[in-house]
Design a protein around this nucleic acid. Structure first.
Lengths: 343, 343
DNA sequence: ATGAAAGCGCTAACAG
DNA sequence: CTGTTAGCGCTTTCAT
């Protein structure tokens, strides 16, 4: 490994001088010396060791990000946004996947902190309060992704879930549906799920309807739970004429479930999904969904973090939470209800 | 920031002793002292600074990975595999996206090296020979992802593309198709593309057919190029009865293109795609594809890298290239050709 | 304008 | 068994 000393020796100068050109502090340096040093660097193919640099300066210019599942298209789009923005600002990203395991999340946090990341972005899967306790009095700022809570005292980026859900369900109601099922992951005190359910209820309320609790289906997080729930829904004596699904997996499983139960979408059952991707328009049928600005979420998260870093805790900036708006996209998976009483 | 000195002071011992318990070298340490130290660590909520540690030991236990597009589901699945395996082995992953920009790729490599990653996994987008030149004589091992070349002298993980393509096209031929179009990204000297085209030609050859060059369509990498190419194909006087698409984007665009041109899949035009994902079975129609073991590719890449690291260049291990096999999945997007001469 | 020297937090001989 | 010491590669006063 070639070090700054090697360069200094080769150029016949002191390492302070080399360091100066490395850091652009050569206002008062003879052009000749600067050239010599640059040449030596070139010849030796020298790359500065940022570990050593960071040890001295106390800044690593890397931020950590912990995602529950990097291969999920929603999260990987967020990751891309974060990546691009971090890069743009000269930061590196240390990426970590908690695989929905709180223990792994915790150990990832430890690992990132010990590597001296300057901040951590996390879509935490456990209890938020506990997360903060673990962070007690660290100088390492945190930004929360996609989740809020009462106790939240960190920068946060979320999207308006009640609004997203409400608009979707309202669309269904507007079409004439009166019995609308909903598929959800276990609530687990996670705000996106809670809020989407809330939006669902709200839409009913605002239209003078009351929700039939047998139509809200909590699905286990395992593959297949969504198709089973859908089949159960459709086996009901007074079956729903529409189903609102609240994430990408459930979109797909509801679609599969309806087909498996021998019904057709949208003729007999309408489906309104959540999250939008390039393949959604090509599904059978093209799904109406509420689209979330995933890329922008990633960008925003690192922007928030970097802003706080710049401030260095000098100002007493209160936690900032930015709430992005989802977009409802209407395609071809919803029709007025098929009135089977008449058929 | 609390350092090892603080802990030593608090426990009333030397920092060597603290270091020893940190590294598990307390075979010969009094149980009492060990307790004292552990308590001090606990009380002070001490996290070791791995930067300092790495500076001394010369090992960072992080590996870098450069992907052309992290939000592409194929790559993000690979990333997940790499992530899981790295974590399992106690390594961190520094993730970077080159966004298909050779300059960015190069600067990412510099950045990773300066951060002292112990190795780099990369699906390089530029010239492989040049990549190696940039790496000239570094002790930082490289593993190539999804691409090979003549000059390759690094560990590599690829999947058998000619086989994948050949089987797909053979399936089509077996169904009775004689005019089969193919949609490709620009070859750009990239082995996966070249090999898929090769497989396409091979399948023709082996069945005594010659390929009509007007049926092979190179599509620009921009959205929409695939639907346009599909429309052109279908506007041909003697239009193809089947289309083989060679990546996820082109799958979708071909599907859209056929519909846009007013034909139906698979009744009038068959489509055989590449890459498989959870939503593919729910497309209209469910697509037959050749599936690549993406997750396994990621795992294999870090395994290869870690093996080489363990060896520390002691043995003169020749570059290892592991070639995984794809799987052909038959669904419902291919039928015997619709003979329009008779209709 | 340039160099000497101290020190960032940690590990690893070496000494005792 | 435990402590002392000398760095790892770099930045940064402080002299000169």
């Amino acid at each position: 490994m070639v070090t700054i000393d090697d360069v200094a020796k080769k150029a016949g100068v002191s390492k302070s001088s080399v360091s100066r050109v490395l850091n652009g502090n050569f206002r008062y340096m003879s052009e000749k010396m600067r050239r010599k040093i640059l040449d030596a660097i070139e010849e030796l193919n020298y790359t500065p060791n940022s570990l050593a640099r960071s040890l001295k300066t106390k800044e690593t210019r890397v931020i950590g990000i912990i995602l529950s599942d990097i291969s999920n298209p929603f999260w990987s789009e967020i990751l891309k946004g974060a990546q691009d923005e971090a890069n743009r600002q000269g930061y590196g990203l240390m990426v970590t996947s908690s695989n929905d395991n709180p223990e792994l999340e915790k150990s990832n946090i430890m690992m990132l902190k010990s590597r001296q990341v300057e901040g951590i972005i996390v879509n935490t899967i456990g209890d938020i309060g506990e997360l903060f306790r673990g962070f007690g009095g660290t100088e390492c700022p945190l930004v929360l992704l996609d989740r809020t809570g009462e106790e939240v005292k960190a920068d946060t980026v979320v999207v308006n879930n009640v609004n997203g859900a409400r608009q979707a369900v309202e669309h269904l109601i507007g079409l004439g549906h009166r019995r609308i099922g909903i598929l959800l992951n276990p609530l687990e005190n996670k705000s996106p799920r809670i809020e989407r359910l809330k939006g669902y209820r709200l839409a009913h309320e605002e239209n003078g309807m009351t929700v039939d609790e047998s139509l809200v289906k909590i699905c286990s997080p395992y593959n297949g739970s969504g198709v089973k729930a859908t089949e159960q829904l459709l086996a009901l004596p007074d079956r729903p004429t529409a189903i609102f699904t609240t994430n990408e997996r459930l979109n797909l499983e509801a679609l599969a479930g309806v087909k498996k139960a021998g019904f057709s979408v949208p003729d007999q059952v309408s489906i309104f999904g959540y999250d939008d991707f390039p393949w959604v328009p090509l599904l059978d049928p093209p799904l109406s969904t509420v689209a979330q600005p995933a890329y922008e979420m990633g960008v925003t998260a690192v922007t928030l973090l970097l802003n706080r870093l710049k401030d260095k805790g000098e100002t007493e900036m209160p936690p900032q939470v930015v709430q992005l708006e989802p977009t409802v996209i209407i395609r071809n998976s919803c029709r007025p209800p098929f009135s089977h009483s008449k058929s």
